[in-house]
Every structure is written in structure tokens, then in C-alpha cells.
């Protein structure tokens, strides 16, 4: 006896209330509960569905879903670092390396041509802040309305390191005041490169999730 949409939703809500909010973890447990309850409904058509969900939860494990979530988080971490590293290496193609060097040389030329380097670095700082805001609104905020995936949430957390670096750079710029030089410029280039490659890795990971869950809006 196939469960109705409402019954599946009931299981889904129960599992969410138990602390499993990530779709890639929850989906499998929902299916597991649904498979058991379908069989039980065949044997007992008058089954108290709500009560049956709680009973199956008790049978699941002594620790409920805690251990499952821990192991899943560990496994997603492992996979994330592996695939991120793979995507990161695929990002650094020859054209991108050439573009990066060209931008660095171009910026170095501008830096050496203008008399007040402080203004130049203020512009770079402003650009980093703009990217930081873009991340905040474009990636983080947009994802708040969508189904959350454990695999992507880890990518996002890692990606947020960019905000931290931007703030750190601002702080260092403020206390440094003088001494704007090539090393300073290189540090900004690494920051921008981090953003560029980070975004690439995020979208590649997202693509993988989309391929795995074609029916879900990621």
C-alpha cells in the first residue's frame, strides 16, 4: 500500500523535528520509515500512523539519529575535501593562470604609476568588500529559501572564510597605514584568487548535488 503525499510529509516533518534538517540525510530515513510503514499498513489498515512513526524511531537505534548524523557529516567532509581539491586543480588551467598574472602585473603598474598608493589599496579593499557582500546575498541568502544539503552547507562554511579574510585585511590595512608594496598587492591577489576559485568549487559541488538529486531545487 503506497503512502500518500500527506503521510510522507508527516514522516518528513517528524524527522526534521528530530534535528535532521539536511535533505541528503533526511531523504533516506524518510524512505526507510515509509517502506516499513507501508508494510505495516498492509497488515493493519487501521494503524495509528503518528504513533507508528514514533515506534519506528525507537527501533531505529539507541541513540536515535545522532550517530547517523555524525557519521554522515564525517563522510560528507571527506568527500567534500576530495572533490573540492579535484575541482580546485581543474580550476587552475593555463588561461586562468595567465589572466591572474596579467591582472597582477596590470595592478602593479597602476600602483607604481600613482602617487598615493593608499587610495589604490582603498579601492582594492572596497572591491573585496563588494565581493564579500555579493557572497552574503547571492549565495548565503538565496540558499536560505531552498532545501539545505549537508554537502553544500560545508562548502558554504568553507567559502565564508573569505569574509573573515576581508575583515582581517581591512584591519591590517588600518593598522598598517604605510608600507603599501608588492607583498601587499600579492596578498590581495591571493584573496581574489581564493574568491574566484572558491566560487568555482562551490558551483561545481552544487552541480554534483543537482545531478544526484535531479528532482530537487538546490
Amino acid at each position: 500500500m503506497e503512502l500518500t503525499k500527506e503521510q510522507v510529509l508527516q514522516i518528513d516533518n517528524y524527522i526534521s523535528a528530530c534535528g535532521i534538517k539536511y535533505y541528503d540525510v533526511k531523504m533516506e530515513i524518510v524512505d526507510h520509515f515509509a517502506s516499513i510503514l507501508e508494510l505495516r499498513l498492509e497488515e493493519e489498515p487501521d494503524l495509528d500512523f503518528k504513533k507508528a512513526i514514533v515506534e519506528e524511531h525507537k527501533k531505529f537505534s539507541n541513540n536515535g539519529f545522532k550517530k547517523l548524523l555524525e557519521i554522515k557529516t564525517d563522510s560528507v567532509h571527506k568527500r567534500f575535501f576530495k572533490s573540492s581539491l579535484k575541482h580546485l586543480f581543474s580550476f587552475f588551467t593555463l588561461p586562468k593562470v595567465i589572466i591572474t598574472i596579467a591582472i597582477f602585473l596590470g595592478l602593479q603598474f597602476i600602483m607604481n604609476s600613482i602617487s598615493d598608493t593608499e587610495i589604490f589599496f582603498n579601492i582594492l579593499q572596497g572591491f573585496a568588500l563588494l565581493l564579500s557582500f555579493r557572497l552574503l546575498f547571492n549565495v548565503n541568502m538565496r540558499n536560505n529559501n531552498k532545501i539545505s544539503f549537508l554537502s553544500l552547507s560545508i562548502t558554504l562554511r568553507f567559502f565564508n572564510v573569505f569574509h573573515l579574510f576581508t575583515i582581517l585585511f581591512q584591519f591590517l590595512d588600518n593598522i598598517n597605514g604605510e608600507g603599501f608594496n608588492n607583498i601587499h598587492l600579492l596578498a590581495y591577489m591571493v584573496l581574489f584568487l581564493f574568491y574566484w576559485s572558491g566560487e568555482y568549487v562551490y558551483y561545481q559541488n552544487k552541480k554534483e548535488v543537482q545531478e544526484q538529486y535531479p528532482n530537487v531545487i538546490v
Binding site: 526507510h32 531505529f60 550517530k67 557519521i71 554522515k72 563522510s75 560528507v76 571527506k78 568527500r79
Partner: peptide, 16 residues
């Protein structure tokens, strides 16, 4: 096989 043991094992194998 308890579900509490099965799924963590499956996820480990997947991660490996």
C-alpha cells in the same frame, strides 16, 4: 541489521 548500524556503514563505504 539495525538501521542505526546499516546507514553509518553505507555512508562510510560511500565516503571511501
Amino acid at each position: 541489521i539495525t538501521e542505526g548500524a546499516l546507514y553509518p556503514a553505507l555512508h562510510k563505504l560511500e565516503a571511501e
